[in-house]
Design a protein around this nucleic acid. Structure first.
Lengths: 136, 136
DNA sequence: ATCAAACTTGTAATGATTACAACATAATAA
DNA sequence: TTATTATGTTGTAATCATTACAAGTTTGAT
């Protein structure tokens, strides 16, 4: 059974053509795409694809923990197929997004705080990338 | 000169009735309100207030570092008048937002990573608050 | 008081996301 | 297989937070 299908099954998501295509896209493209980018790229291979399906599927995959929805971009949601703990950086000028590895010393990824249960941790850095330094 | 006006001046923002009212609101209400909540509350005291002004002002204050715009809520932007370093928690059931103090050991608030300049750090926790534990 | 710059306001777009109802596909039972 | 039901997909039409824009108002300098 292939890697993508297995990932879906492992997270309790019944595989379908569309779900596998979207999951595969996110596993192969580490670009933190928007729903629109995913739709536009997959539309070429799957011309019957609907944008609603992309949104529905991304929500489903997020709920099942198979995908991370990232809120670093105030305009649109970004999606990440890499579930390993890491932070994100976004350039306020060009909008590029990078993964940032976590320092071992940081005790950021925890199970709870007081009486709060935590099941998502988001660490976002915003600033200027190498190319955009001088422009601002 | 009063605390609110001083805060604006310190951040290079020329004070006006509206700007002071919004800044004062955020300094007194640590509720991480939306633009709409701010508008609705201030509209009572300032009936001529426009929602556009609230949005304009919040953007201006954020750009000048007098206010933090928080992206923890995927529906609307939240605003915080407390500029000291701290994290945020949001309950996925009831939507309540709490401030979370940072562990001293965490080296989260840094000036740069490699060739990236950082000027905003956002640490968000999502999960379930005390009251919403059992419901999910 | 005059004039220009800076602020504020209301209305009209914009645009990402969701609701919904029809259609299609997959799973199950007989 | 066929009938039946549940689940998944699609397209169109809302929704609704935020922004664009143009007109009106206030402020500050001369």
């Amino acid at each position: 059974m292939d890697r993508v299908k297995q990932h879906l099954v492992d997270h309790g998501v019944k595989p379908s053509i569309q779900r596998m295509a979207i999951m595969k896209y996110l596993m192969e493209n580490r670009t933190h795409p928007t729903a629109d980018m995913i739709f536009n790229d997959l539309y070429i291979e799957i011309p019957t694809l609907s944008k609603t399906t992309v949104y529905n599927t991304l929500k489903l995959l997020t709920e099942h923990g198979a995908v991370k929805t990232i809120g670093i971009d105030e305009k649109n949601a970004r999606f990440d197929g890499d579930m390993s703990p890491h932070a994100h950086f976004r350039c306020k000028n060009c909008g590029c997004i990078y993964d940032i590895p976590l320092d071992q010393n940081d005790k950021i990824f925890i199970d709870g705080i007081g009486e709060l249960t935590i099941d998502e941790v988001h660490l976002y850095y915003k600033g200027f990338c190498k190319n955009c330094q001088q422009n601002n």
